[in-house]
Amino acid sequence: MTGPTDDWAALLRAGMAGDARAYRAFLAAVSPVVRGIVRARGRALGEAQCEDVVQEVLLAVHAKRHTWRQDAPVRPWVYAIARHKVVDAFRTRGSAIDLPVEDFAEVLPADPGEDLTERRDMEKLIGMLDDRAAGIVRMIGLDGQSAAEAGARLGMTEGAVRVALHRALKALAALRERHVE
């Protein structure tokens, strides 16, 4: 494997070693590819709902990143997660989908587009967290604060904010499994 796969592997490896910037770059590189896959397969849903599915896939990639073996290629791993989550998302939204993973490599990456980037599903899930956890997620996500800044506002240490964030994201992944409709 060459090209983007190697880049993804390097970024994810650095990310898992604690390099938040590399990890962010990894997620940013993965999301247009995932978006392309979701849109190519899910025209019936419309582009807006597709973005909800893209976010579900990203949350799953994040929650399950410890299942990537660092010497294995990243792309098949991402594709397998995307396929699993997309099939799941389409099933819970009431439509079956046939999704041969072999086709994923041919799908073109896609940008989010202007007017459909604000998605509701993740907001709904965040609303189901307890207030403190939801507050931390919103401060970092919507207000663009770092864990340290959020901690200063909440009277928590940066480490405590990170632990709370980690728990909140695990809870989000579990909630999505039960509540997405």
């Binding site: 940013a28 997620v137 996500g141």
Partner: peptide, 18 residues
């Protein structure tokens, strides 16, 4: 929530499970 916002949140969580 925008996908970019979500990515920013995920990137702040550096603790991977075993």
């Amino acid at each position: 929530m925008k996908t970019d916002d979500l990515i920013r949140i995920l990137a702040e969580d550096s603790a991977a499970d075993p």
